[in-house]
Design a protein around this nucleic acid. Structure first.
Lengths: 221, 221, 221, 221
DNA sequence: AATGAATGAGCTTTCATTCAT
DNA sequence: AATGAATGAAAGCTCATTCAT
């Protein structure tokens, strides 16, 4: 629609084909983006194919051309969004650092990722609820990866004597995950209870500190 | 519901009206029960009125007679199920005991309530996601009530010097809630990761202990 | 519900039966009244049996007991309301008077009857439209009666030389009927066009005069 | 609808888009036609969407695609049919002619329009009855237009001394309308009373003459 | 005579998906 | 590659009517 950058449309040998491919890629991306926002907002059952097509600005038929059907599109949306967090967790850990530093950094990274990615937060929530009805088979795989990632870290912490040796790693991960997600899954409810703006820098940081304190020291003295 | 005044329940002539009313009440209850299970399972959008009527063993028309429409039925289901936890929380606290004991008892009660009431767990999850689309105005009220309940308890704990004075009560409640719920909202996913049966007595108790440890001491030494 | 008037329940030999009959008659009447107003307002298709029962303050089941079904109730309503006008037309004509006086009196009686009986006006309108779908076989009978009534009057007028001899009686009746009905069938539309209150005494009289002028002299000079 | 600019309609390559648009327009028209006949026959409440779709030979879904919902379709039907008469009334009056000629011509045009457009006759009747329940807001607008149209004509007649000066224009219009409509709204009833075929040329002309006589001279001598 | 509970058929409307170009 | 028109199955809801007391 915006046309080609001037002087570029002759560069690649079979221009039309390349162009087609490019536009095709663009369409796919637009669909995926629209689908992400709508599936996140309304869930796999509430989302309407028409609405997605509309928001993507493409013909509904193309959506079927690229993604087959609604369920498959939903799956693709999940895959697309889950990949984001995977790359994230990879960079958070550096075994050269102290365990506490690593854990704090990983939690911080995760927490702010969630703050920035409402769609991700909601998609995982929908999936947790729709397990068995609408896929729900994708997330466990990612959980496994994360467990793998943290496994070494926590074992290292236990060896170095700074993490309780009786910790169940899976439970620990689940707990951290739950603590971080809570603010964002309950976003609107929480917002209505708090007086302040939850998404202010200070508030987010305060929440994160609360979580870190809890992880490191518990609520009781 | 109010029953007969004591001493009268053996009178021979069964009042016809009462019988009618009783059957009506029974039907309402059957609908509510079926609706609870199906709304919990499939959410407000995924649930089908036909299915609810079928499962309740009544004619769909009666459902509309008693509850007006689907959304209102959903609301009634929420009300009905939320009331359960409200009465629960009322009985958990006894300010004569030590704060730690109170907190442990309240968390335990809450945790096992969740373990026993999958429907409740799922209903709150749906509501968190559907806020603004399908009601979502009911839960905050209950949250308020719980906050009120715990407020005194935690303040008492702070005064007695066994709870960190810098604790934000609302965050603390949110965290405890999140930690307990996590096992059950992620039920199926978790189940697929754990080898053992999550709902075995030992496993449940282990999970609860993990949460209590975390609350009392954190993960780190 | 209000009980029997004190001291009266022993007067008539089989008291209960008489009373029953009386209450039964009362119920029938209440149903008929409610049905009239609702059928008039919403037509045979728009009317709801529930609404009629509600407005009559009786159990829906009784309505079926007394009238069999909706269509039959509708028919009974028509019969009941058509009878009113029949008795009316009987008293309007007196062959001793001059034809012009008779006609004026008959039209006046008819016009004011319509003004007072919105239900009648609307019921005939519905029936005209629903002919073949919901009865519509009742009105023609009444039309016949009226024709009979007027026949003599107009023939008399023709003989006496004050009515055009080439008049088609049936057309004349139809025209008068149409002219009178127009104000009331178009009631709401007309009301929205006129500034004044259509149902004020003066306005009604003015309309009637217009019709009489038209009948006696036409619009043109 | 606007057709191709003259001289272009023989171009060979049939533009695909145009073809599509054409088919779409055709479907819309088919729906409108079927809806007209069924709404006219059974009224806004009695008409069934399924029946309309069937008669139009299209899938019910398209009906909703084009017209949104039943009520809106009904409105569109009214608009479509009311337009016919509007264009009619525009051409009937020519102030160069004598008032009597103009009035006779207008009435004649109107009368035969009604004879040819049973749907129009019935639609206005339904609307008069359903005012406030199903729209009923469209007709008054057209009445206003017609009033405007005739206003000059009748004022002219009064000035020239051939129309009674005390005539209320609105009443006159209402009366003429009522007289003409009567034959057709009461069509089936009338038919059952008359021996002859009402829609024979002679009969129609006789009815029209009766109306004109009434307007010009009244029934009485 | 009177009633509340119950029903099945049918209504309007919605949705994911496919056809034809 | 892209599109508007079309579809059938199913959803939520309503209604006249009957059952059981």
């Amino acid at each position: 629609m915006e046309g080609y950058p001037i002087g570029q449309h002759k560069h690649i040998t079979p221009p039309k084909a390349a162009n087609r491919e490019q536009r095709s890629e663009e369409s796919r991306a637009r669909i995926l983006k629209a689908a992400t926002s709508i599936f996140a907002e309304k869930g796999p059952e509430g989302a309407r194919v028409d609405e997605i097509a509309d928001q993507a600005g493409i013909n509904k038929r193309m959506l079927y051309h690229y993604f087959g059907n609604k369920e498959n599109l939903y799956l693709e949306v999940l895959r697309y969004n889950y990949n984001k967090i995977y790359t994230l967790s990879k960079n958070a850990i550096n075994l050269a650092d102290e365990p506490k530093v690593n854990v704090a950094r990983a939690i911080r990274a995760y927490f702010y990722f969630l703050a920035d990615n409402e769609a991700y937060v909601r998609l995982t929530s929908w999936e947790a609820l729709c397990v068995g009805r609408f896929t729900g088979k994708l997330f466990p795989q990612f959980f496994d990866l994360i467990e793998l990632e943290f496994d070494d870290l926590i074992k290292d912490g236990i060896e170095r004597g700074c993490i309780r040796p009786d910790i169940d790693i899976r439970q620990a991960i689940l707990s951290v995950r739950a603590l971080c997600l809570a603010y964002f899954t309950q976003r609107k409810i929480v917002q209505s209870l708090w007086r302040e703006d939850i998404f202010s820098e200070e508030m987010l940081e305060a929440c994160l500190q609360h979580i870190l304190n809890l992880i490191f020291d518990g609520l009781f003295i």
